[in-house]
Design a binder for these strands. Structure first.
Length: 200
DNA sequence: TACACGATTTACT
DNA sequence: GTAAATCGTGTAT
């Protein structure tokens, strides 16, 4: 079952960050369908969150997309070489977002290896926010994109495979002062592989 | 126009 | 363990 924009608009960003664990994230880019089970997310909770690009109600050409209604992508470029992918959530003018930090490869694995280089193992293929965008072929072209469309979408398929969810501080946000300590990073630990049966 | 830096990854010592 | 890669973005001039 696909997740639609209403779902991303009406639910709280922290709840969504946890809910997305075990959902699948899909791309159809360069004619290839790739997907993986989401295993790690982070929540960025709006204008009062010092770790967010939208802190202090900052509106710039880059951050403007976060102020749109939920259900669209926020892709940005960092460190001169990496793209990071977020889901914009919440109502218009309330700039919340979920950073997708890791997925476990499910379909299109050959294409993913081609994009990232075939020298690493399956478990290390897309277990980082910049690695998964590279695997799925996501670039700045996929910013501000409908997340229930033909190119990027989510499905609620494998949440039963997540046995336990652990929260901790977000990664790489030391500049955020006290907000760097907030437990807004969520990691889903899988159940045994035998439970990995798709449900619709 | 100029400059400092980043919600990271990789390779190398 | 440390460092390099590398450029869009934000803020200051």
């Amino acid at each position: 079952m696909r997740l639609n924009s209403t779902f991303f608009i009406e639910n709280d960003v922290l709840d969504l960050s946890k809910y997305l664990l075990g959902c699948t994230f899909h791309s159809m880019i360069d004619g290839v369908h790739c997907s993986g089970i989401i295993t790690e997310t982070e929540a960025y909770t709006g204008i009062n969150d010092r770790a967010s690009h939208a802190f202090g109600n900052r509106r710039t050409p880059r951050t403007e997309v976060m102020y749109c209604a939920g259900g669209i992508s926020y892709v940005y470029f960092t460190y001169g070489l990496h793209h990071l992918f977020n889901v914009v959530t919440g109502a218009e003018n309330d700039p919340h977002a979920v950073l997708i930090r890791a997925i476990y490869p499910l379909t299109g694995i050959n294409a993913m290896f081609q994009r990232v280089g075939a020298k690493k193992g399956l478990h290390a293929l897309s277990n980082g926010p910049a690695k998964l965008t590279k695997c799925l072929g996501i670039t700045l072209e996929h910013n501000r994109m409908d997340l229930d469309g033909d190119l990027l979408w989510f499905e609620d398929n494998f949440r039963h495979a997540i046995a336990r969810t652990v929260a901790g501080p977000r990664v790489g946000v030391d500049y955020a002062g006290e907000d760097a300590l907030l437990p807004y990073r969520f990691v889903g630990f899988p159940a045994t592989a035998s439970k990995l049966q798709q449900t619709k």
